[in-house]
Write a protein that binds this DNA or RNA. Structure first.
Lengths: 170, 170
DNA sequence: CGAAATACGTCAACATGGCTGACGCAAATA
DNA sequence: TATTTGCGTCAGCCATGTTGACGTATTTCG
């Protein structure tokens, strides 16, 4: 992160060089292939449970933030409540997720994983963990820091607090 | 990249520490949000042309590798030819893509962008470029190198040559 | 207190972009 | 010449996103 200040301290010539199209395209492509390969890692396990990627995303975030209200999950997933409702209905029917009435605000429905849901999420996470841990180990800690920095920069500033809250204290 | 050797030279205790779950989850989440925000950047322009993300992916790769045979594009996109055929039919109908018979192998159909297709791809690329260039600039060159390294590690080794060929000489 | 806003659920219809299976044809290759 | 390869196509299905319209319980505000 400190590098940014050093490198871009008014050095527009170096910036222009640095931001050449080929380097941008390389980033786009690696991001595309890296992302799709990561999520593909869990497809087999999802399939064996009759679930899809949308279910995985919901399980993932509920595991990450237990007692999350439906509205917060909607904001993270950035989909409509109608889309989410199908996914949540599936998960509840299968006994993987339960809802509790909020205590502070009784209109809220707080989402929780059942023990079975937690077990499945853990198994799904393990599939992702393997790939990510391998990539981290190959690249080294310094690279991981850069990986985080660039990805953070891709997220609109308004959305960053939401994600920081997700990751806070973990 | 050299860091990896230094950091992981048989230091299993440090590795275990380094690969803690929280750091894995952070990577998963940033990769998810970073990827979705990047691709979302082009949605407006795609919409205004009546196209979707699948069309964008095809346009992108055809622009990247002119005269690419259909089979190569299928391998990059990792979808079925039936799925791709719908997308290519749309693009050809709109005059954005044309096919030429291969000279070496006349069974092949080599994909090319028309001038209109190239113009649209350039505009779509500009949407992505803005976001990626901003992230690169914020994070710094050193971070970008780490970003590439981690993402490369997420791609199965068998697939890497295909992507390197895509990026070769650019 | 009463009105308005909020959090959530639901029904219905539709679009996008994946998938499988089955066939056909022209061109290259064994 | 027989087989394999590269590509196209018809047909149907599935997962997951969308819009629009309503309903209900609860909270908040004037």
């Amino acid at each position: 992160m400190a590098d940014a200040n050093i490198l871009n301290a008014g050095n527009t010539a170096a910036s222009a060089q640095f931001l050449r199209e080929a380097e941008i395209r390389r980033g786009i492509e690696l991001l595309y292939f890296g992302y799709t390969n990561m999520v593909r890692g869990a497809d087999g396990l999802l399939d064996s449970h009759g679930l899809g990627r949308a279910h995985h995303r919901a399980l993932y975030f509920i595991a990450r933030r237990p007692a999350m209200p439906v509205g917060d999950l909607l904001a993270l997933l950035n989909i409509t409540k109608q889309s989410l409702s199908r996914v949540l209905a599936d998960l509840q029917t299968r006994g993987l997720v339960i809802q509790a009435v909020g205590q502070r605000d009784r209109r809220q429905r707080l989402l929780e994983l059942t023990p079975e849901g937690a077990a499945l999420e853990a198994a799904l996470f393990e599939e992702l963990r393997t790939g990510m841990a391998g990539a981290y180990a190959q690249a080294g800690q310094n690279a991981v820091t850069g990986f985080w920095a660039v990805l953070t920069g891709l997220i609109p500033a308004v959305d960053r607090p939401m994600i920081q809250e997700l990751q806070a204290g973990l």
